[in-house]
Amino acid sequence: MGGNHADHHHAPDGHGRALRLGIGGPVGSGKTALVAALCRTLGPSMRLGVVTNDIYTTEDADFLRRAGVLDPERISAVQTGCCPHTAIRDDIAANIDAVEGLEERFGPLDLVIVESGGDNLTATFSRGLADKQIFVLDVSGGDKVPRKGGPGVTTADLLLINKTDLAPLVGADLTVMSRDAAAVRDGKPVLFTSLREDRGAHSVAEWVTGLVHDWAHHHRAPAPTTSTA
């Protein structure tokens, strides 16, 4: 942290930079496992960076580094002062700093993943930080959770429901979850998975790959010149 970054501004419209993907969701739903899985599957074909927002120090970043799915230097940890949602929604400055720091050190990158600290159903990423976002739930929170909604469930570009292998054990009805999620998401995609069984999160990786290709197609052109550079 804290290196002397070069003095340049990224164009706010995203030209010339990587796609920024936010991953949010409640504590224990599988956000870090998803990040590890995406790194495992996408790492060989994409230039990646990861920013973690740990509630406690560098727990998640350390987990990812130990998992060996990505060069440890490409994983940056941000502390959020007791308020994980503030750091991804109201005051995104430290996260932007971390993302831009990764791009300056390792860029150009194709994808930077920002993992939120575990939060509640009201958490959502600012559009100033994440271009696209995934909200991760798990079945063990109960099959009523999608019905309860909240901006993560209703507006995330992808809703991922994890730990389907536990559904019979906790009495969660996946049909109910699927129906309720569809009802509040206005056609936006919902995927079910068990990251314990699918350690590459292949369905999610495929969705992300589509986003990255689409982003590159629209934003890799040289940035328009501005007077504030």
């Binding site: 941000v78 502390q79 002062g81 503030t86 750091a87």
Partner: peptide
């Protein structure tokens, strides 16, 4: 304190 400049995470 609502100025979004990262101050919320410093004690």
């Amino acid at each position: 304190s609502r100025l979004p400049a990262g101050g919320h995470a410093h004690s």
